[in-house]
Simulated assay, not measured.
Amino acid sequence: MFTTVWTASPQLPSEGFTPNWSREGFWRQSLRQVVRLSGGGERVRIRLSHAYGTSPVRVAAASAGRAGEPGSLRRLTFAGAAGAEIPARGELVSDPAELAVGAGESLAVTLYFDGATGPATFHAQAFTRSYRGEGDLTAAADGFDAATESWYFLTAVETDAGRRDAVALFGDSITDGFGSTPGADRRWSDALAARTGRPVLNAGIGGNLLLNDSAWYGEKGLNRLSRDVLAHPGVDTLVVLLGLNDIGFSETDEQPTYKPAPVVEAAELIAGHRELIRQARGAGLRVIGATLLPFGGSDHWGEHAAKVSHELNEWIRGSGEYDAVVDLDRALADPQDPGRLRPAYDSGDHLHPNDAGYAVMAEAVADVL
């Protein structure tokens, strides 16, 4: 039985926050992606998504190995074949490969595309580098000459650990890890995995909204929960931290793909949270609600946003509708000004935590698991 030990939520090809290759895709090129696993096992398989593709994409060859250990490299197969197609709007799962990995280790996955992929389903904000090189480099130690900080096609790594205690974090850029040190794996999902020893899946998308879709920021949370969390094997707990962009985008002029942003009321967000709870409980998951973090002084703050955030947080704390509550608002608030992040936890934009703030978030969640 397999357990998911790493995830990235797929997004529509787009310009995104930083330069990426999603719109141009790949042709006669190899793509190497390095991901940090939150659980171990003796066998590994990968999951590739082309959720936003209009025609199949052929993977001519693929490999996986422990990062920095060329001797651990294993050829990946698909139904026994070296290559296969990812169906348009579908996914492709590799055969299990004999490869021992441990929690906290990094896995290097290399894909070779011998034909033109067209626009690539991707995850915009990886906060770690992915590499591209010419030709088939699936067995090569190097040869990659370009890099971006996004993931492409790769949406999950699974191992044969057979565990059924994975925790999924569902949210926006705070869950995705914005403000953490790039390349250092210091998101709160990483910190929670290290703190608990349980597999932790990061289902965050930068800019994501609970109630509405966006060209850059992914499908709305109400629609993507099933694909990005419930479909993964081994998950038994869901932590929801979502709604701040629904509140805050109407206060800022800095969101080029989401204008005009609706002015959202607390009742709408509460209904959305109730729907997430219903879907997750229907899949047998324990559901934990996280209060929204303080955001005073950020580009998301305004009188209406502050009011709605307070009302939503009070409902999360006091309604009893979640199985448990983690009060991240209070855990990260500045004691001198509770509407703002504590300066020691602020990445600098008054909205996203830094590494220290993410570690505090992980500790708070660990206490209610």
Rank of each mutant, 00 (worst) to 15 (best):
R227Q: 09
R227N: 10
D228E: 14
D228V: 07
V229P: 01
L230T: 04
L230F: 13
L230I: 09
A231K: 04
A231R: 15
H232N: 15
H232V: 00
P233Y: 14
G234V: 04
G234F: 09
V235M: 09
V235A: 11
V235Y: 06
D236S: 09
D236C: 05
D236M: 08
D236G: 03
D236L: 13
D236R: 12
T237K: 08
T237Q: 07
T237F: 08
V239F: 09
V239R: 02
L241D: 05
L241H: 14
L242H: 10
L242T: 01
G243C: 12
G243S: 14
G243M: 06
G243P: 04
N245T: 03
D246P: 01
D246M: 05
I247P: 00
G248Y: 03
G248W: 01
F249T: 02
F249G: 00
S250R: 04
S250N: 09
E251W: 00
T252Y: 02
T252S: 10
T252F: 03
D253F: 00
D253M: 02
D253V: 00
E254V: 04
Q255C: 01
P256V: 00
T257I: 02
T257S: 11
T257Q: 12
T257Y: 13
T257E: 15
K259Q: 11
K259C: 01
P260V: 02
A261K: 07
P262W: 07
V263K: 12
V264D: 06
V264K: 06
V264G: 03
V264C: 11
E265L: 13
A266D: 14
A266S: 15
A266I: 14
E268Y: 10
E268Q: 11
L269A: 11
L269F: 05
L269Y: 08
L269R: 06
L269G: 02
I270Y: 12
I270L: 15
I270F: 10
A271I: 05
A271S: 14
A271M: 06
G272C: 13
G272P: 04
G272T: 10
H273E: 15
H273V: 05
R274A: 14
R274W: 13
E275G: 02
E275D: 12
E275R: 14
E275F: 07
L276N: 02
L276P: 01
I277D: 05
I277W: 07
I277L: 15
I277R: 15
I277P: 01
R278T: 06
Q279K: 15
A280R: 03
A280E: 05
A280I: 01
A280P: 01
A280Q: 07
R281F: 15
R281D: 12
